[in-house]
Simulated scan of single mutants.
Amino acid sequence: MEAVEPIRHKTSIARMKRILKARSPRDFALFTLGLNTGLRISDLLSLTVGDVLAGAGTRLRIATRLSLRERKTGKRRNVMLNSTARDALALYLRTRERRYPEDPLFLSRKHEKDGSLRTLSRAWAYCVIVNAARAAGISSRIGTHTMRKTFGYFRYTAGVPVEQLMKIFGHASPEITLAYIGITQEEIDETYADFPL
């Protein structure tokens, strides 16, 4: 399997968001949540409606924090939801006829044989992301993991210490994290040229 890359330009992200929002509030929410939380696709797809709602009641209120157990590592993780992620989730959930807490957050249009709701498949999520990227003119290697890598890339380039990203991603060294988020030697070299003292 070929490694995917982060999306390195905010204009490309904005184009993808416009495309996804026009096609499907669900797909827009999935992409936006992935970009803003750095969660793996398996963790995104395992979320329930109850995971993202704040309290009970008839008003739709999105939580400011997710608490989940990562599927890959089994570790507990608390993740803040910024206003961009909360707004995308609210937009999507307003389009849902059914919002029971135990329902899958990202629904497939297909149902199980017994009529119960089915979670969006990983393969379909991949198609959604890749098709939107191609429609946005992105030609680099893209996949569902692109959202997680893009999350790390933009935080690192905004000044978040690599040690924080290592902790978020569960990496053992800064070198692994930098390679993971696609920081190239050329980008590292530019930092020396950009900051003469």
Rank of each mutant, 00 (worst) to 15 (best):
R71P: 07
Q185K: 10
S173L: 09
T191A: 07
F106L: 02
A56L: 10
P25M: 01
T37M: 05
V79A: 11
G50S: 12
T146Y: 00
D114A: 13
A179T: 13
G50M: 07
D27A: 07
E175C: 07
N36C: 07
A56F: 11
A56V: 12
I168C: 02
A132W: 00
M80A: 14
P104D: 13
R61C: 11
I176A: 12
E2C: 11
S12F: 11
L35A: 09
K17T: 10
L68R: 09
F106W: 01
F151W: 11
T64Q: 13
A22E: 14
D114P: 04
R109N: 12
A132G: 10
I181V: 14
M1E: 09
S42R: 05
M166K: 09
V162T: 12
S116T: 15
T58D: 07
F154M: 06
L117I: 08
T184W: 06
R122K: 04
L120A: 04
L66S: 11
M147Q: 00
K10P: 12
T95G: 11
P25Y: 05
A63L: 03
L33S: 08
R65M: 14
I129G: 03
A85G: 04
A132Q: 00
R134P: 00
R148I: 08
K113H: 10
I181H: 00
L107Y: 02
